[in-house]
Design a protein around this nucleic acid. Structure first.
Lengths: 366, 366
DNA sequence: CTGTTAGCGCCTTCAA
DNA sequence: TTGAAGGCGCTAACAG
C-alpha cells in the first residue's frame, strides 16, 4: 500500500539501487542509455515518487524554505508571500508557511519547527517588536535563530534584525526604508497642508510602526512643523477604525464650534489602518478629503480601488519577498556563471526603494 | 557544525538513544523521572533539535499538509489559507504552500512534490477547470491524486472534485453551493430591478465561474426574467475592469440616446472582478448605483470598506479552509474522545453555508 | 524500565 | 560504468 521505493524500481529494472538512483536523480555520472531507459520505465510503471524525506536525510538538505508571517490573510503579508513563492520556485524549493500572530514566542516555535524540518533557509516577514512583554521571547527567538544559523541555516529578516540576534553568517536583513519614506511623505504633505497632523500608529515597540512614526515626525520638523500627536492602537483595521472614531469626534466638535479651523491631516502607519480610519470618519458622517485628509503606507494592491484613492507610500512588497528569499539562496545554486567578485555579497541583502504616492485622499480641493 | 543528534544527547546523558527518544518525543512508556531529567538537560545544553526528516522516515508520516492555491496574494485564497493554517496548527502540522497559477499541469507538479515530501494530506483550493486545453492536465492531475490517495494520502478539494479523479478513499470534496447561492442572489436582485441583467464571468470551463453563472440564470428564470447576457474575461480584477469598460460604453450610449431606459444590473462572479468593473464604470464617469447596479461574490474582507458597499454573497472562506483541512485529518488524531459513530464520516466533508448580502451597490435609490 | 537490534529510503564513498 | 556497503537520524520491535 505504501509508495514504491527506489529499491523496487531497481529490482524491476534489474539493476542495483545505486544505479537507479543515478538515473532518476541528478548525478555526476550517467549510466548507459539503455540501462537508463529501463530504469525510467520501471519507475514509470511503478508510479515511483522519490521520498524527499529520505533524500533530505541522506543529503542533509531539505529543499524547504520557511516563511514566517503574522497573518497570511493580511494583504501585506500575502503580497510578500507571493514574492517568496516566486523566488522559491526559481530555486526549486518549496515554501513552508508559519503564521504566528506576531508574538516572538510563536516565532521562536516556528523557527524551531523549521530547523527541525531542516529548512534550508528561513524568511521572517513580520515586524520586530521591543515591547516590554516581548523581551524574553525576543531573546529566545534570537537564540533559536543563532543556533539555526550556526547549524548552517540561512535567514533573511524583512525590516529590522531580530533584537539580540548575533548570528555570524547567513543572517541577512532586507532593509526597508520606512523612516526615510515616512519622512518624505510628511514633507510632501506639509507642502499642501497648513493644519495639524495626527498619526495613527501601532502599539509602541513595533519597529515598523515606530520607524514610520519617527520618520514622519522628522519630516514634519524639516518642514518647520510642530510634531504630530500620536494615537496608538492595534496594528490592523480595527486599530485604525477606533482611532478614526476618536478623531471624528474631535473633528466634529471643532466644526460645530464654528470659528476658523484648519483641516486635520491623518497619517496612519499602514494602509489597512488608514482604511479603517477612513471608514470610521465616514461612519461619523465626515468626508475625505473634505473634512480631513488621510494617508497610509504600503500601497496594498487590493486597496487601490478604494475611493477616495489613498495617498500612501508604495512598497514593492512582492519584490521584498523575492529579494529576501534570494538572499538566502546558496551562491552558485543554480545560476550558470558565478561572479568571483564577492563585493556584492557584503552589501545588505538588497536595497528596497519605495515611493511616495499622493492621491485623492490628501488633495486640498474642498 | 551540523546540528546535534539524538545519539549525542543520549551519550551525554549516559543512556541509550532509544531512551532519549522516549523522553524527548512522545512515547507510551515514560522513563524514570531522574533519567528523563538528565536527558532533557543534555538536550538543552546541546541545543538539540529533533530531525523531523528522520522522524518522518522512521514513522512514515511527515506532519505536513500541502496547500495548493492559484495565487496566495489573492484575498480569496489567502483567506482560505488562514483557515488551513489554523486547522493545521490544531493538528500540530505544518503547511506546505504551492502556488500554481491555476493550471492543472502545475497542480499536478505540486501534488507530486507533496507526495514526494510525504505530506499527510493535501488541500486543493483553486477552481477546477474543464477547458479544452486542460483535459490532458486534468487527467494527469487526477492520476497523480489517485496514486497519492492509494498510497495513503488524504485529499480535500474545495468546490468541485478534480475531473476524472476516481480516488477510492481519503478523497473529500468540500461542497460550496455556488450555484444555489448565485440563484438566491439573482432572486433577491430581481425583486428590486426591472431592467436587464448582465453577468461578468470568468473563462468558460472554470467550474466556480460556470456554476455561479448558471445559478444566477436559474434564479432569473425563477423570477420570470430573461436570461442575462454573459461577458467572459479573465477571472481577476483586470477581467472585471475590461468587461466594465465595455458595459460603460454601452450604458453611456444608451443614456445619450435619451428616451427611457432601465438601469443595468451587473453580476460579477467574484468580488475582485466586481471591483474591477466598478472601477471601470467610475473611470468612465458613471456612478454606482445611480447609473448601474453591481454585485459580486465571496464577500472579501479587505473589500468591505469599498464604497459603494458591494452587494455580494458571503462565503465563510476561512471556515472553508478549516473544514477542508480537518476533513483530511486522521480520525482520532488528537481529540480526546473518539466517537464510535462513524456516520458522520460518510457525509460530505462539510456543508458550507453562504449568505446573500445586499448592500449599497445594488440599492434602487437614485 | 532500559538497552539492543533492525530497519525507514536514499545517497555516496569505495571496489570491482 | 556498475554494484556492494555503510550511514544519514530516528523509531519500533524485541530482549533483558
Amino acid at each position: 500500500m505504501a509508495a514504491s521505493t527506489l529499491t523496487e524500481v531497481a529490482r524491476l529494472a534489474g539493476v542495483s539501487p545505486a544505479t537507479a538512483s543515478r538515473v532518476l536523480n541528478g548525478s555526476a555520472r550517467k549510466p548507459g542509455p539503455d540501462i537508463a531507459e529501463r530504469v525510467r520505465q520501471a519507475a514509470e510503471s511503478l508510479g515511483y515518487v522519490p521520498n524527499a524525506q529520505a533524500q533530505g536525510l541522506a543529503k542533509s538538505s531539505s529543499g524547504l524554505i520557511g516563511l514566517i508571517v503574522h497573518d497570511i490573510a493580511d494583504p501585506y503579508f500575502s503580497a510578500i508571500a507571493r514574492g517568496v513563492q516566486e523566488a522559491a520556485r526559481e530555486q526549486r524549493k518549496m515554501v513552508l508557511l508559519a503564521t504566528t500572530g506576531g508574538g516572538p514566542a510563536e516565532e521562536k516555535e516556528a523557527v524551531a519547527a523549521f530547523a527541525a524540518r531542516r529548512a534550508d533557509s528561513i524568511v521572517i516577514a513580520g515586524s520586530r517588536s521591543r515591547r516590554p512583554g516581548d523581551t524574553e521571547g525576543n531573546a529566545e527567538l534570537a537564540a533559536e535563530l543563532d543556533r539555526y544559523c550556526r547549524n548552517g541555516g540561512r535567514v533573511a529578516v524583512v525590516g529590522h534584525p531580530v533584537v539580540g540576534a548575533t548570528a555570524p553568517e547567513g543572517y541577512h536583513v532586507v532593509q526597508v526604508p520606512n523612516q526615510e519614506l515616512a519622512g518624505q511623505l510628511a514633507t510632501e504633505l506639509a507642502k499642501d497642508w497648513d493644519g495639524k497632523f495626527v498619526i495613527i500608529g501601532g502599539p509602541e515597540g513595533l519597529f515598523t510602526s515606530d520607524d514610520r512614526i519617527r520618520g514622519f515626525q522628522e519630516g514634519l520638523e524639516r518642514a518647520g512643523r510642530q510634531p504630530a500627536e500620536v494615537l496608538r492602537n492595534s496594528f490592523n483595521r480595527t486599530g485604525g477604525f477606533e482611532a478614526g472614531l476618536q478623531l471624528a469626534a474631535r473633528i466634529k466638535a471643532e466644526q460645530s464650534e464654528g470659528g476658523e479651523h484648519t483641516k486635520l491631516c491623518i497619517f496612519a502607519v499602514n494602509d489597512v489602518m488608514a482604511i479603517g480610519a477612513a471608514a470610521a470618519l465616514r461612519a461619523e458622517g465626515l468626508r475625505i478629503p473634505r473634512d480631513a485628509a488621510i494617508a497610509g503606507f504600503d500601497d496594498i494592491e487590493t486597496l487601490r480601488d478604494f475611493r477616495p484613492a489613498l495617498s500612501t507610500v508604495r512598497l514593492p512588497l512582492e519584490e521584498i519577498g523575492r529579494i529576501a528569499t534570494r538572499a538566502t539562496g546558496r551562491p552558485g545554486g543554480h545560476s550558470a556563471d558565478q561572479d568571483k567578485d564577492h563585493d556584492q555579497e557584503l552589501e545588505p541583502a538588497g536595497t528596497i526603494r519605495g515611493e511616495v504616492t499622493l492621491r485623492r485622499s490628501t488633495e486640498v480641493a474642498a
